[in-house]
Design a protein around this nucleic acid. Structure first.
Lengths: 241, 241
DNA sequence: GAGATGTTACGGTGACGGTCGAAGCATCGG
DNA sequence: CCGATGCTTCGACCGTCACCGTAACATCTC
């Protein structure tokens, strides 16, 4: 099998701690510079440069030059999903799960973060929960679907679902969509095109914004009001455990 | 992040060519002995034993001792899905895709094979296609769903869908199910619980059987008749390209 | 019990690759 | 034009790990 060698190469690239750190830092879909990533990984810029060159050469990353800065990002959504899946297995195999809750800087990450192109953490799970509770979305461990009522609701909320509907295949149910397993909440939340739509719309309309330098996401007062009143979200009652 | 170290360790384990070969050999869900796996990887049994110990220690594999034989298998469906996802990225990043079609022993693999617990290859894709064409299943790039008519059809074909229905969450559509992207056909096919149900039922009823030592699957005359008459499958017209 | 087979443990060897310092190139600002 | 910043390449060092012999243990067969 020809892909076997490529498989091993990809896994080996992801297997180095320094490269692994950099890939994780890029999992929110943003682009970071070489020096930024070297600091994340705790290595010198020279070493980071070599790593990033290799990751780009095989196609895991893509590079965009802006002046003297080189911005690196994940090359595709497939790569992001691969990292998510590996992350999930890593979380499952983690021997001492109790330590997770007492992790130092993770509190904000656990509350709300981006997962390449959609929300995760308590915000992501709570959004999925409230949409399910209102019958707008169906979700199980294997897949998800937006109901007809859900499409109407999303349109009313100002989210343009037309680009998603173009991918629609059948007519019997609603819009089939991807579900993503949350490694910190150990629950399913919305991913795929629908998750991306909600996330970008929230960012563009000031409902949420990124905390600089991390994957953590801040819910603005405006966003909290909208999430509570329009979506029926109760994020505040969901304390960190 | 505590899972970062575990992530790197998992990736590093999968990154060695010898271990990668063994993991691929186990991707059909069967259990193989240490010596069998050493032959697959082209290394000595001693070396293979060491590799398998490490893979088991972190939890990627599980071992079952039967007399002097040690049977190794993938520890969970999560691990299998992780390997599938990595396989998909590897296929996407493969530089010369034309070579795939002329690959030596891959012809049988491309025709019909198992993907941990469900069918893949031309058989898997054709099964999905015919079920979609008859309105029994809806499928897009992100998810899948069995319609009410599909559930009726499966029951009539002798497949017990009750264990799947217990996971069902909503009532509006049908049964949400996992879709799996086929790295050789570059199309979606049925995975998850539904895919596993079809595969095990086919194996148990003699519709298909495994070609010894590989992931390739042989469609028996009985199975071909059933697939053609009951499922409306046209696998023979789909020649290797 | 004796021989054969499957598996694991140990020690030594060799190669791959991660790391940083030094140096060179590109870009921005003054 | 010149210094500063970001990035890359090169060379050398060094730790890690895959690999195989050899040997020991477990199990099955005769």
């Amino acid at each position: 099998m020809a892909t076997n060698a490529m498989f091993a190469e990809i896994a080996a690239l992801a297997g180095d701690p320094a490269r692994s750190s950099m890939l994780h830092a890029l999992m929110d879909g943003r682009a970071l510079t070489t020096t930024m990533l070297s600091r994340v990984a705790g290595i010198s810029p020279q070493t980071a440069s070599g790593h990033l060159s290799r990751l780009t050469a095989v196609g895991l990353l893509s590079v965009e030059k802006q002046g003297r800065f080189h911005y690196h990002r994940l090359a595709s959504a497939s790569v992001a999903r691969m990292l998510e899946t590996m992350m999930q297995v890593a979380a499952e195999l983690e021997p001492d799960r109790a330590r997770l809750s007492t992790e130092r800087g993770d509190a904000e990450l656990r509350k709300a973060r981006t997962c390449f192109d959609h929300f995760a953490g308590q915000l992501g799970v709570a959004l999925a929960d409230t949409l399910v509770a209102q019958g707008f979305v169906e979700l199980n461990a294997e897949a998800g679907m937006v109901t007809e009522a859900g499409l109407t609701f999303l349109d009313a909320a100002g989210l343009d679902t037309r680009p998603l509907l173009s991918r629609r295949t059948g007519r019997q149910g609603g819009l089939l969509c991807r579900q993503c397993f949350d490694w910190s909440e150990r629950r399913s939340h919305l991913g795929g095109g629908l998750g991306a739509l909600i996330c970008t719309h929230s960012m563009n309309n000031g409902w949420t914004r990124r905390l600089d330098g991390t994957r953590a996401v801040l819910i603005t007062p405006k966003g909290e009001k909208i999430f509570r009143e329009a979506f029926g979200l109760k994020i505040n009652s969901r304390r960190c455990t």
